[in-house]
Amino acid sequence: MNVLVFGEKLEQLAGLTSFIATKLRPSTVYSAIFDEPKEQDVSVLGGAGADKVISLPSHIWAGGAAQAAAALSEVVKKLDLDLLAVYASKTGLEIAPRAARRLNAAYASESVSLETADGGLLASRLVLGGGYVSTVLLKTRPAVVSMKAVGETGAFSKKPAVEKFSLSVEAPGVELVEIVKPEASHVELEKAEVIVSVGRGFKKKEDLAMAEELGRLLGGELGCSRPISGDLKWLSEERHIGLSGKRVRPKLYIALGISGQVQHLVGMRDSRTVIAVNIDSNAPMAAESDYFFVGDIYKILPIAIQKLKEKLGR
C-alpha cells in the first residue's frame, strides 16, 4: 500500500505520518507540504516514517481549500496511491471531503482508527453526537480519511528524498482578507491537569466569576460547553470543550452546571476523574461522572470556595 499524508502544520503532518507508518505499514509513505521544506523539517518527517516528501507550490495553499484539495488529488492520481490521509484540523476537514469527491473516493471523516480489511480499509468514527462508534468499510481505491491521530515522531530513522511537484490546478479560489486573533491570551486546555468547566447552569456572565475563582484556587483552567462560547459568547471559542471544540484529558475535570449533552461528553470523556455539580439528578452528566453532586451551584460553590481558601491558605 502507498499512502499520501497531509497536515497543515509540521507537527500534525509528522504525527499523522508516524501513525500511518506504524499502523498500516505501507510500502511507501509520502508526506506532502505546500512549501519548500527546510532540511530540519525533512529530517523530522523522516523520523516520523516518511519515505518521500512531496513539495507542492505554496501559492496553491494560499488559494484555499478547493485548490489544496485539487493539488493533493493530482498527486494521488499521478503516483497511483491507495490512500490520502489528511490531518483533521478545521481546514483539513474542508480539504479532505473535496479531495474525496474529486477522486470519486470513499471518505471517512475524523476517523479514530484505521486498519486494512477484506475489501478495503476499515475506519471507525464517532457518530450520533459522539456517544457511538461507527465502523465503515472504505471500498474504493484510492480512499480518503481525515484523522487527528498522531504517532511517535521519533520512531523511525528514514532519510526521505524531497520530490518537487510542479502542477497547476484549476479550482475556485477563496480570498483571505484577514485573520482576527482573539484578545484572550493563548489557552492550552489540552495540557491542563485540572479543568473547571461551565455550562448553562450559570444564569449570567458575571456568575462565571465563581468558576474562575475555583479554577484559580485549584491551579486549573476554565473550560465550557458550546452554548457558553457559541450562543452566549461569555467565553472565547478556545475554551469550548466538545465535538466541534477541544478534546481534553485532564487529571481532574470539574463540570459545573453542565447537563452532559453527548456533544460535550466527547470532548471530556478521556479525563481521569470527573466531578460534577448539577441541580438535576437525571442529567446525563451523572452517568459520566465519578462523583456527582446533586445541588444548586449557586448555593454550593460559594461555600466550597470559602472552605478551599481556608484549607489551602490562598
Binding site: 473516493a105 459522539g130 457511538y132 462508534v133 465502523t135 465503515v136 468499510l137 474504493t140 439528578s281 452517568a287
Partner: peptide
Amino acid sequence: PLAERQQVKALKTERRRKIFE
C-alpha cells in the same frame, strides 16, 4: 455508498457514578 457502514455501537464509559445529595 462507497463507504459502507458495518456497525454502530455505544461507547461505554466506566465511571464510579457516586451520587451525593
